[in-house]
């Protein structure tokens, strides 16, 4: 059907869907009148039983740690998918780094950007490590700290050039770091099995409330997740950057491109 017909059909269907949802949402409690029992139970129990003051991290990595393991592997699979899809195809090869959109060489970055990048990168990396390490005490944790750490690496690219990133890491190192992070989470889960408790049980000593080295396995899991998310995101960014800045079509297209008539 043409796009105009589709638009009209959607407007009708969308109005019907919205009406159905509004009728359904009418049965929810009013905004601010949260009634459910589990939130209150977790808030009351998390600090005395697990010595974790950030209840969201406790839910993520202790009470429901198994679900977060699944989410982490979704992330792993998505990064794997991007690295596979954007790999160098038979009809492409590395060219020099140039601004593909305009065809000229990448202009050198201005001094203001360089100074800003130089000044901002160390605090960002430090802040990222702080957020990961204190995930069980204050808002933060492996997911947030990992993304902030990837942003710190991105600042280096923004202040310099793409080649500067090659001096910092190789892709093999990133892949190994990501795999170690993902595997460590599962390995910490098996610690519980080794000591006779269930999988992913919090079996290390719980320590004192409010200290960095407390809450058993949760800081270790935070470190593993932070490592994996940071390495995965940097790998993602490097794949996109290499695809945009470096890979160019070579003279002969590959067999798949020919088959699709491209």
């Amino acid at each position: 059907m043409t796009i105009q017909v589709r638009r009209i059909v959607f407007l009708l269907a969308g109005a019907f869907l919205a009406a159905l949802l509004v009728w359904g949402m009418g049965g929810l409690p009013h905004f601010g009148a949260y009634r459910g029992p589990y939130g209150d139970v977790l808030n009351a129990v998390s600090v005395p039983e697990r010595h974790i003051t950030d209840v969201v991290t406790a839910v993520n990595f202790d009470f429901r740690g198994f679900d977060t393991l699944g989410e982490e592997f979704i992330f792993f699979a998505a990064v794997l998918g991007v690295a596979l899809i954007l790999r160098a195809q038979p009809g492409e090869g590395p060219g020099h780094v140039e601004d593909y959109a305009t065809g000229r060489a990448v202009p050198p970055t201005s001094d203001a950007v360089r100074v800003l990048g130089l000044g901002l990168t160390p605090p960002t990396v430090l802040f990222a490590i702080y957020v990961v390490a204190h995930g069980h005490l204050t808002p933060g944790g492996g997911f947030q700290g990992g993304v902030i750490l990837a942003t710190g690496v991105l600042l280096i690219y923004l202040a310099g050039e793409f080649d500067d990133l090659h001096g910092l890491y190789t892709e093999v190192t990133l892949e190994r770091a990501e795999a170690i992070g993902a595997g460590a989470y599962a390995a910490i889960g098996t610690l519980g099995l080794l000591t006779g408790a269930t999988f992913m049980a919090n079996v290390l000593p719980l320590g004192k409330i409010g200290h960095v080295f407390s809450a058993g396995t949760v800081p270790l899991i935070n470190l593993a997740v932070g490592l994996e998310i940071a390495a995965g995101l940097v790998l993602l960014l490097t794949t996109f950057l290499r695809q945009t800045l470096v890979l160019r079509p070579t003279a002969s297209p590959g067999p798949l491109t020919k088959a699709l008539g491209g």
Binding site: F31, A33, Y34, G39, N43, V47, D54, V55, T138, P139
Partner: peptide, 13 residues
């Protein structure tokens, strides 16, 4: 859905 009037963030530090 999870919001409660007068409630604070679930961080007890």
């Amino acid at each position: 859905i999870g919001y409660r009037t007068g409630g604070t963030a679930p961080v007890f530090a």
